[in-house]
Design a protein around this nucleic acid. Structure first.
Length: 108
DNA sequence: CTTCTAACA
DNA sequence: TGTTAGCA
């Protein structure tokens, strides 16, 4: 299936391989409304890239993040709680990366 | 497509 | 508080 399709009045940009989506496409993939995604951005849950014209460009990772937000939201968490979870997720990834580097080190 | 305002659950 | 709808 082609990623960039549907009825985008403003086409994101025909860059095959990058997979960027307009907010309408991202909303459909995330199973939520466009206005909700904009609200998530104001809450700091997601930070999509913007084109020169100010149009939001959601990457594949952003869509995955939107799906993650949807699941957390469905689990009873509010936007403030989700922001905290996302913060911990990033911190956890950093810790794991540091741990992996320490393990690969012979000894000190 | 964007932001804002307003109303509903 | 989060979601949805309409307007500029």
């Amino acid at each position: 299936m082609d990623a960039v399709s549907g009825t985008p009045g403003q086409k994101p940009g025909p860059r095959a391989g990058q997979a960027l989506y307009a907010i309408s496409v991202a909303a459909k993939l995330a199973g939520t409304g466009q206005q909700n995604i904009r609200l998530y951005e104001t809450k700091g849950l997601i930070l999509p890239e913007r084109t020169a014209g100010g149009t939001r460009q959601y990457s594949d990772a952003d869509v995955a993040l939107l799906l993650h937000i949807g699941e957390l939201l469905d689990q009873g968490l509010n936007l403030a709680g989700i922001a905290k979870v996302l913060e911990l997720e990033v911190a956890n990834a950093e810790l794991r990366r540091a741990l992996g580097r320490a393990r690969s080190r012979p000894d000190t």
